[in-house]
Design a protein around this nucleic acid. Sequence first.
DNA 1: TAATTAATGCAACCTAGTTGCGTTTTGCAA
DNA 2: TTGCAAAACGCAACTAGGTTGCATTAATTA
Lengths: 129, 129
Amino acid sequence: MSLPRNTKAKQAVLDEINRSTYALSQPELFERVKGTCDRVTVYRILDRLVAENKIHRIVNVDGTLNYAACNQCDTHNTHAHDHLHFSCLECKKIECLSEQSVHVQLPSHYQIKELFLTISGICPTCQGG
Amino acid sequence: MSLPRNTKAKQAVLDEINRSTYALSQPELFERVKGTCDRVTVYRILDRLVAENKIHRIVNVDGTLNYAACNQCDTHNTHAHDHLHFSCLECKKIECLSEQSVHVQLPSHYQIKELFLTISGICPTCQGG
DNA sequence: TAATTAATGCAACCTAGTTGCGTTTTGCAA
DNA sequence: TTGCAAAACGCAACTAGGTTGCATTAATTA
Ligand SMILES: [Mn+2]
Ligand SMILES: [Mn+2]
Ligand SMILES: [Zn+2]
Ligand SMILES: [Zn+2]
């Protein structure tokens, strides 16, 4: 693989992701870094950041792709994203739930690669009291 | 809600879904029922079948929407889709894993509505021996 | 500072899904 | 059996998210 370079746009996108408490979509990110680069560039930056294990891609329950910081990953080498995600039906935000243990009765004859676990419902903020 | 009607197209789509061993996308379904109706009609039929609890919608790990028969649902009234799904990285097919128990340490302060659980990996067929 | 090539901008394209509206069918009732 | 209301449909136009090709710009490293 070719060695990655650091650019203003790449840093701007990564900053926005790190700053956010929930996962952001490409349209949301493009809106936030508007002026620094083209929308196509945001797509390419996101692909690279995922490949570099700096962020991870979360599929929401409606199929939209979102990107979040790797908070629960101490090192970016080993990357087991078997943590839970929570998707709020009210504010539509999806976030990582760190350290939530999940026990899955693994199916036999299937070769497991990764787990995708998302709970939908209402987040604490939207319950408002 | 208005009372649903039965049409040739609706029956054709439902038959394809029931016949399949894995979940099908709208493009796949349109291909299979080609000639019986317009592609827009397939979208509308799928929405209705989901609303009528005849099928359920599965979001694959890449964000694509797929539709599968409600095999594990004895009655179509109560509809708790907390079963596992398996998504094959090789053949790209996604299927329901019936009766696989999942134990999730529920997060406090969050109001749970539904569980979305998908395992990615290699299916028995694609392991080929 | 110059060379290498990763990263970008831009235009064009693609796929999945939606919307509006006039027409056709379905199911039910007279 | 026929008539009617509205569910379902076809078609065209549109939208959103994402991709691709290619010429140009800019980050690294020597
Ligand atoms: Mn991570
Ligand atoms: Mn079901
Ligand atoms: Zn919320
Ligand atoms: Zn497979």
